[in-house]
Amino acid sequence: MTDSLPTTSAGAPTQGAAPTRPAGTAPGTPGAAVVVDHVSHTYGRGDTAHHAIHDLNFEVMPKECVSIVGPSGAGKTTLLRTLAGLLQPSEGAVWVNGKKNTGVPDGMAMVFQDYSRSLLPWLSVERNVAFPIAGSSLSKPERKALVDESLEAVGLKGFEKRYPWQLSGGMQQRVAIARALAYRPKLMLMDEPFASVDAQTREGLEDLVLSIRDRYDMTILFVTHDIDESVYLANRVLVLSRPPATLVEDIRVELAEPRDQITTREDPAFIHLRGHVARLIHSGGEPV
């Protein structure tokens, strides 16, 4: 199932492909949206040090929807925070759109796992969605148009004046997605965004992600611990091992589009893939 990209765990390090690359230019395939280059991270030092992720190498091309799965505590959030520029990795570097991350990269939005903490309870839905663009150079009507369109895209038209705490968990997470959309990101990071909503709401939100991916031409990186979800949503699944997390396998997902909650999940290819991912995770990174 290992694909032919040069950037799998077993494959050559991305830097190996271009050893004479000029300083300051990104390693890996030219035009890649994200390049993760020999990234390791250790929390703390001395006795309490925790080696969370180890020598991760992969790249994501524009408009790909890549899911990252791994056992709980593997270091998925750690990886995503380094991608977001919220955490400087102890070793290696992340490149977004050809630029090395020194802080939060431009044109990136994030949907957090904890929707109840990521929405501002003193702002209405509409002002929460407008929050990231409120300081931008856009005119007021332009901002309003962006907010309206984003709320419409997530099916929350008519809820503009509500407050986050007046909405269900699934609706709150849709507000968070609308907020990310209104920002018009090229890269969207999602950290277990549906972990705390009920199963039915979750399916709706998964299909929402698929529809906005098609509509807005974004690159999406999606962290989940749900194996089915990782396969259902993605063009590629990156499987992480138990900590210190290494990349176990980089799996290409070629399922019929558009995906459908019922038929896709019945597809023998889907069933085969999910079984494969599950086996990888359960073995904790040993070959299967």
Partner: peptide, 9 residues
């Protein structure tokens, strides 16, 4: 998360 929100955007 709330502080990250400010940084991310």
């Amino acid at each position: 998360t709330m502080l990250d929100l400010g940084k991310v955007f």
